[in-house]
Simulated assay, not measured.
Amino acid sequence: MPPTPSPHPSPGIELVRDFSLEMTGKDNAALAEATGAVPPGTRINVTFLGNENLSMRLAAAVAVRAAGFEPIPHISARRLASVAELDEFLQALTGDARVHEVFAVGGDPASPLGPFPDALSLITSGRLQAHGISAVAIGGYPEGHPDIDEATLWEAMEAKSKALQEAGLDGSIITQFGFDTAPVLSWLQELRRRGIWYPVRIGVPGPAGIKRLLTYARRFGVSSSAGIAHKYGFSLANLLGTAGPDRFITDLAAALDPAVHGEVGLHFYTFGGLQATAHWVAEFEAGP
């Protein structure tokens, strides 16, 4: 039975509507379990990880489409060995999974495996449009990147934005997850000051076990449980429980100004917990 809506809704309720989710090529079973809890048509990103292959990524995108959701496959530029590999993947995605939009990222390898060193090279290759892709999401880093300085990040953002316009592709931005609203708001303001007005989905960690959350967070500069607790808003007495991003979302929604920050939504990094995240969103919308 769905939660009963609160008569005094949180300022974050509007922000969580039309949320998007993320899954890996290994999460098909989790997707099946979550299908009844996730609103039809929800955008679900499918990752492009090094321990997955084309068939796994394709099967996940097909499963997303078959379940009534919108698959947004990631394409990791540096993991592609050739143009032929990109073409094979795109042909399969646009055929079997009826994909219209992808998320172009550089990827983790220190050296490219093939001809694509970054997301910009994917956008300018012409291969996306050749296979019927009409929209491309690109990455944003409000709290910085561990391996790329801020000036370079902004140069890349401006170059990708310009390339999307020149290619006639619709654009959007999905950010890495964070724990603090202040850098998110500052980053959004700077993005708009630079004339980039694409819709932005702010990355948010879904309700995840604290140990798992801490493991992921260390990759992005927040290395202590005390630091996580301070920014994320949960009690250190409950470190073995589950944290939800209530405070982050409520604070962010209260501070957003469309005239300054533009169109903003949320993208949940689920850490495999698709069903838990969907249930959490429903409960959040219902209010306390």
Rank of each mutant, 00 (worst) to 15 (best):
V99Q: 11
F69A: 11
L128H: 14
G114T: 01
V83A: 15
F116P: 01
A84H: 03
A135V: 04
E88M: 04
A66Q: 13
I133A: 07
V83T: 15
A104W: 11
S111E: 14
P109Y: 11
G126V: 08
S82R: 03
A104S: 06
L93K: 08
V83C: 07
R57P: 00
R65L: 09
I75N: 05
E70W: 08
E85V: 09
S121L: 00
A104H: 12
L58N: 03
I72W: 04
A77V: 12
P71W: 08
R57L: 02
F116G: 06
A84P: 00
F89R: 05
H74V: 15
I133Q: 06
H131K: 09
I123T: 04
E70H: 07
S111W: 01
D96G: 00
L120I: 04
I133R: 12
S76F: 12
S55M: 11
H74R: 11
D108P: 00
A92W: 04
I133T: 11
G126T: 12
V105A: 07
A67L: 04
A59G: 09
P115C: 03
A67V: 12
G95L: 06
D118H: 10
L113V: 02
L113H: 08
L122Y: 10
F116N: 03
L113M: 13
L93M: 14
R78C: 05
T94R: 11
A110K: 14
S82F: 10
V99L: 13
L128G: 07
R57G: 13
D87N: 13
P109D: 08
R79Q: 14
S76P: 10
F89E: 13
R98I: 02
V136M: 15
R78N: 05
Q91I: 05
V62W: 08
A119H: 03
A104C: 15
A67T: 07
S125Y: 05
H74N: 12
A63G: 01
L80V: 11
A97R: 07
E101V: 01
L80C: 05
Q129K: 13
A110T: 06
P73W: 01
V99D: 08
Q91S: 15
H74Y: 13
G68I: 14
T94Q: 10
L90K: 00
A66D: 14
L90G: 02
A67W: 05
G95A: 14
G106A: 13
A84E: 15
A63Y: 08
F69M: 15
S82D: 06
R79C: 03
A104F: 13
H100L: 13
S111M: 04
A135S: 15
